[in-house]
Computed example of a mutant assay.
Amino acid sequence: MELRHLAAFVAVAEELHFGRAAVRLHMAQSPLSRQIRLLERDLGVELFDRGTRAVALTPEGAAFLEPARHALTAADRARHAAAAARSGHLGRVSVGFAGATGNASLPVLTRAVRSALPGVDLDLRGQTYSGRALDEVVDGTLDLGFIALPAQQGVATRVVRRERLLVALPDTHPLAGRDEVALADLAGEPLVTFPDGTGSAVREAGLRACRDAGIAPRIVQEAPDAYTVLTLVGAEVGVAIMVDSSRRIRTDHAVLRPISGPAPVLPIALAWRPDDPSPALREVLRVAEEVLPTPIDADPV
């Protein structure tokens, strides 16, 4: 049973006239009649009562008409789905994000993709730390990831945001009343940070900033997430180096202060495998470029 035979049958069934059906299908009447005969032979029934004055559906033809219409509609949908997938307007893209890397940019991207590419399903996967999202992009577990730079070789990246480092202090701390805090003023202070060996980009950036300021960090406690870090800071366990997006966390006993002077910056980027053949990923990246423009001062400092 061929789709062209079904189309021929539906045209004749709706017109009840071979000549008009042939005109509708842009073909001669003889080939049309031959296609109907082939379909009847395949089904083992007669679909039309071919009288001398009119054409009418047989009971078998009447029963066959609606399923034939459904089959043609389904074939047309399948054809459009294949074309949409080829163009990148249909598919699935997995996106990894963690904490500061996705806090501000992820909602902007997901809303834009759902508006521009309703046929693309974003599989959002929250990670504990940026390093894990990067590892999963590299090994193919993720298609796209929000990560903190620098990134390992083998991935393509585009900076979408720059997170400036801040100092988190207990509200009772002598430095809490200042508008800005110099990193050098934290010498000897107990430090709360994220766990070692987890791929936390905020931890690495904070420790690097301390060392650049001539401070030997004295880590007294580690915590798994920004909320817990700030809770420990508020409990006067120590101070912490955080990022801009941490301001979105409500804290009653901890304050965030800018770092005086040229503030260290953590570049946030989208990362993907440059050899990924997915048309859907290509379209998501196109949308990302429109709604997450690269900051003018995107070079890491």
Rank of each mutant, 00 (worst) to 15 (best):
E289W: 01
P274L: 04
G99Y: 04
R20P: 00
V167A: 02
A62P: 02
L191Y: 07
A7C: 06
P195A: 12
A168R: 00
I241Q: 03
A209C: 10
A98Q: 05
A22W: 11
S245D: 13
V95T: 04
R247A: 11
T128Y: 15
E289D: 15
S30R: 15
A205N: 10
L232M: 13
P293N: 00
F9Q: 05
E290V: 08
S260F: 01
D297P: 07
S245Y: 05
A133C: 11
H173N: 06
A156C: 11
L191A: 07
Q152P: 07
A28N: 14
F97D: 01
V113H: 06
P217F: 09
L122R: 04
Q153I: 04
A22E: 05
S130K: 05
A71C: 08
P300K: 13
I268H: 10
A148G: 15
G96T: 01
A68V: 08
V265F: 07
G177A: 02
I296C: 04
E2R: 13
A205H: 10
I215M: 05
F9V: 04
G140I: 00
T231M: 04
P274R: 08
R37Y: 12
A82I: 11
P277M: 11
R50K: 14
T58M: 12
D143L: 02
A13V: 03
V243E: 03
A156E: 15
T157S: 09
G96M: 02
T251S: 13
A269H: 03
W272F: 01
G140Y: 11
V301R: 14
D49T: 06
G102P: 02
P267I: 04
D225Q: 11
V192P: 05
L134S: 01
G197I: 00
A71W: 06
L142P: 07
A298T: 05
D185V: 01
A8Y: 06
R4Y: 14
R79C: 06
